[in-house]
């Protein structure tokens, strides 16, 4: 398919609709203009059902070896939203398109299939999603922790805002009221004692 590159935003939209049908929704196309020559930055956002997520990535890899910039994620209450930021058309001046695929995972079933067999470079970001959001990446080739310290509790996830988050572990020193308050947890107390000594 490489000979058809660069493809346009509309072609991407069509390609996804053709391959995925109803599983793809909320398509939003954007063009932001930059500079005196007004060269546009092209983006497309879409939501894909979890069961068809792998199909979506496969559909994308039919076009070009997809470049996965990163997957960002957030806790939105009942669901955890993951956004996979892909780029296609690299190597074509001013034609690159950001393809942002959103997947919603219900809190009681936080599972997403791995895409490392399609995009081997995705393993770093998948490992990060596991430890920061508690998402279970099914069949991930390497499920070890990446960034967090070994001593960090197993069932706490820094980007979650519910009871599994780390709000009570954190202390906001930029908040004058809280900074002057007595330290709450043992760990903070120890550290403070050490500094004073």
């Amino acid at each position: 398919m490489n000979q058809n590159l660069p493809i346009s935003v509309d072609q991407i939209e069509e390609h996804f609709k053709e391959e995925l049908g109803d599983a793809v929704s909320d398509i939003k196309k954007e063009e932001i203009e930059k500079g005196l020559k007004e060269t546009p930055i092209k983006l497309i956002w879409m939501k894909v059902e979890r069961d068809q997520f792998r199909d979506a990535v496969e559909a994308l890899s039919e076009l070009q070896v997809p470049h996965l910039s990163v997957a960002s994620g957030s806790d939105m209450g009942d669901i955890v939203e993951l956004i996979y930021h892909f780029q296609v058309n690299h190597g074509f001046p001013a034609d690159e398109i950001s393809v942002n695929i959103k997947v919603h995972l219900p809190k009681d079933d936080l599972k997403i299939p791995t895409i490392t067999d399609i995009v081997p470079g995705a393993v770093t970001t998948e490992r990060e999603k596991q430890e920061f959001l508690g998402v279970d990446v099914v069949d991930i080739p390497d499920s070890r922790r990446l960034w967090l310290d070994e001593e960090f509790p197993e069932d706490r996830y820094p980007w979650r805002w519910d009871e599994k988050g780390m709000e009570e572990m954190a202390r906001y020193v930029h908040d004058p009221e809280e900074a002057s308050a007595e330290p709450t947890s043992e760990r903070v107390g120890e550290k403070r004692g050490g500094e004073e000594g």
Binding site: K37, E38, T39, I41, K42, G91, F92, A94, D95, I97
Partner: peptide, 11 residues
Amino acid sequence: RIDQPYSAYGD
């Protein structure tokens, strides 16, 4: 800078 020019790179 070339693929998806930001700032002034498009010019």
